[in-house]
Design a protein around this nucleic acid. Structure first.
Lengths: 229, 229
DNA sequence: ATTCCGATTTAGCCGAACCTAAAGATGGGC
DNA sequence: GCCCATCTTTAGGTTCGGCTAAATCGGAAT
């Protein structure tokens, strides 16, 4: 006992709590209900169960936080998810906007052996196709250093590190523009009053709505070979 | 509605009924209970549900048979299972005695897109690693023509078509002897009183217990290049 | 300090799929 | 033709994870 309680629902809740926590947002009942598409009372009920299992700390009316044991499970599920996304993209040619849904289905059902085999096949990657870090088997995560594209200096050359958009249509659109992890782009600036963001990819310029652009995280690039003054 | 009822349990029952039917054995409550590792009353309950969904015909105290709708679902699940087995073996290097357990986990959770992509990757194979036929997308099955190894004529050259053993240890053993689908072997004969079966694989002879040998299905081979009188 | 609104929890319920214990059907042996 | 062992179903109950409706909490605004 202790392993028997790892139902799909339990794993889903722990993952959702982890993702909310790591996005800086509070893991409130309402946020979890929205994330998991269940009613608020269902969330309360499950949180009480998770607390009794010592997987979360639950302060009534104040939300939850993961215990070490809960975080461990969450990271295992996230590792499965992100490895699967990467595998689906690389081994089976899935377009990046479709990998999430399929990985979501499979993440609870793969064995440790499957996990190990796809990780080895992929060469133990550290990020998924969206640029999100893949937790190590022992639960350590590569540090994300990025800033938002919109926070770069005007005219600055950057490399896309991560695209946080979830919607398949948005991802497909960004992909068609070449705005995906590892792409080198130049942030040209932003029109006033939350206007569109101007960005150069290769030789073409694109305008991207602010809300979408804010989902793009980049890292500064040292100097794109001999470009410094 | 009509799709919503395809729970994992429903799919498992339909698959088990199909496999029992196609093995010639009656789909009795007891047989299903043994196969699915649940109690007999649980089976009765589910059969009533399946009957109300028009997926099986249930004559109380007489067992069940699949309707067309039920057979369709069973074949879809079996297609998933066998495609997965093949994919795990070929794409990820799983040994054949391990593919069954992993496919069992995943078969209910892959999307149609995943099914299509692995089928294409494999080149639309018609058998799984055990030699069992993979149903087509429209539900048609390649016909199995084989006879049991023990039914071949003494001294006859045959090709293994299918290995029906389920146990991982047995499969591992047979594999280590080279007794796997597509292997060309010669049936040398059988010791009296249900004694071991003698078979030649390549240049070496092996003795295999009758019960295990009876799980091996073969097809007669025309003439192994210039071997005829 | 009081009110009020939104967020949360409690209370009570449902369906799916399992279980055990007990009752009922079937069919083989005599 | 009857009896009995075996198989199957009925009866009643559990757990899990969801739901709605109603009560309650807590913080923001007056």
């Amino acid at each position: 006992m202790g392993e028997a309680l790892r139902t799909e629902a339990v794993e889903d809740y722990l993952k959702a709590i982890y993702l909310l926590e790591s996005a800086g947002r509070a893991a409130s009942t309402a946020a979890l209900a929205a994330h998991l598409e269940v009613s608020a009372p269902s969330v309360t009920g499950m949180l009480k169960k998770l607390a009794s299992l010592k997987l979360v700390r639950h302060v009534p009316y104040r939300g939850v936080s993961l215990t070490m044991a809960g975080r461990k499970i969450a990271l295992e599920v996230i590792r499965h998810h992100r490895l699967l996304e990467r595998y689906l993209a690389e081994a089976l040619g899935y377009p990046w906007e479709k990998v999430h849904a399929e990985a979501e289905r499979l993440e609870h059902h793969i064995s440790e052996e499957f996990e190990d085999r796809i990780a080895a096949w992929l060469g133990h990657p550290v990020t998924d196709p969206h640029g999100d870090p893949i937790p190590d088997k022992d639960g350590t995560l590569p540090r994300q250093t990025g800033l938002r594209l919109t926070e770069a200096g005007a005219g600055e050359a950057v490399v896309i590190e991560r695209v946080a958009a979830q919607d398949a249509g948005q991802l497909n659109y960004l992909g068609s523009l070449g705005l995906r992890p590892e792409a080198a782009v130049t942030f040209l600036g932003q029109a006033p009053y939350d206007g569109p963001v101007h960005v150069r990819v290769g030789t073409t310029e694109h305008h991207v709505g602010v809300n979408l652009a804010r989902q793009i995280f980049v890292r500064r690039v040292a100097s794109p070979k001999g470009a410094a003054a």
